[in-house]
């Protein structure tokens, strides 16, 4: 368990296997939700998580792989692609500058 403050998140990465489908959809909704905050949202395959990512969001089924690729990054796993409470918590932490436990 680690804690990250929403204010310290400058780049959020949505990772999935191919970076072709669901991660694209989630990234687009997050981009819209976080548009005003100035946070960069990218979608990438889980094998190429960029070094400057502050937080990684990915499906629970990929969280283990994401951790092995980016062991030093906070990883937030989710189960449903649209409206998952875990993702909502990240958005809130960024918007309100509050702490996020991951």
């Amino acid at each position: 368990m680690a804690t990250i403050n929403g204010k310290d998140i400058r780049k959020l990465v949505v990772a999935c296997d191919a970076g072709m489908g669901s991660s694209v959809m989630l990234a687009s909704t997050l981009r819209k939700q976080l548009g005003k905050s100035g946070v960069t949202v990218e979608h990438t395959p889980v094998n190429s998580i960029p070094a400057d990512a502050d937080v990684v969001v990915c499906h629970n089924g990929l969280a283990a792989r994401a951790r092995s690729v980016a062991p030093d990054k906070p990883i937030v796993g989710f189960q449903v692609f649209l409206g998952d409470p875990a993702v909502t918590r990240v958005v809130k932490a960024i918007q309100q500058g509050t702490d996020l436990n991951v």
Binding site: A18, M20, M25, N47, H59
Partner: peptide
């Protein structure tokens, strides 16, 4: 193969099937 590992169901009765990274 992709569907076997993680469902592409996205809600509201909609799924977005697609290939794996290797399938690109």
């Amino acid at each position: 193969a992709r569907e076997q590992s993680i469902s592409t169901y996205v809600g509201e009765g909609v799924a977005i099937p697609h290939g794996t990274l290797a399938g690109k």
